[in-house]
Amino acid sequence: MNNIGRNYFDIGYMDTLAQGDSWLHQLDPRAKVITTLLFIMAVVSFGKYTIWAFIPFFLYPVFLIAAGGLPGGYLFKKVLLVSPFAILLGIFNPLLDREIFLLIGTIGISGGWVSFGSILLRFVLTVTGALLLVALTGFNPVCEALRKLGVPKPFVIQLMFFYRYLFVLTDEAQRMERARALRSFHSGFMKYRTFVSVLGHLLLRTLDRAERIYYAMCCRGFDGQIHRLTSMKSSLRDFSFVIIWLGLFSVFRIYNVPEELGGWVMRCFR
């Protein structure tokens, strides 16, 4: 499978996960959007040398994966494969910040390694948070929620069209790339000239397709407005979902739970 094929499969799989039927899937999408944002805000609000305080936050992804029946291994692999920008930049920290910051037993750890570790933890938590939102909600309900939360309609409508045709166009691009690869016997990426032609043709087809879609819409009385019959109702369950997590995040944010617990345990054993 080529690169496009993998991505195509990936989006499709995330979309399949979102079709699940756990109670988490059925929550009001707004509740999940808000909770995800609260989670990410809470995580990034810690100082750069935070390590232990992040650990309680793993409750959120672990709980969602478990209760939502999601494949944890797949999501974890996905997080690992994600663009390495954060790691690339983070790896400079140990080189630039070498003062001993932390001692575990007799091993001294420099501030740079601590902050690098902190970056990795942040990274895993925030990326997992975002992926879980889509895997438990689906893209269109997320858009719907954004609309209800006040994001302008033209933007949401085009998000909707975008997601719909993402599958069609990725598939088309994949077929073009496959047809090219089958006839070019040197391995590797395409030559620049081929690339421009492939892209140009894809763009022309896209423009034609947009025209046909517009025509199809006109045939059914499109007048510039998209009307939809959607209702979103929040129940007590949705509210409590947000409130409970908000409560937990606040506790995790304010109290360094691992240190307090560890201190207590150590006192007990002393």
Partner: peptide, 28 residues
């Protein structure tokens, strides 16, 4: 005049089947 396109992908542009079938009647 109701028109059925050769390529159904061009004709089904809404997020769900229900939304798509409702698109015309809503516009009416």
């Amino acid at each position: 005049v109701g028109m059925v396109f050769q390529n159904s992908d061009d004709q089904l542009f809404m997020p769900t089947v229900f939304d798509d079938v409702a698109f015309g009647p809503m516009n009416l």
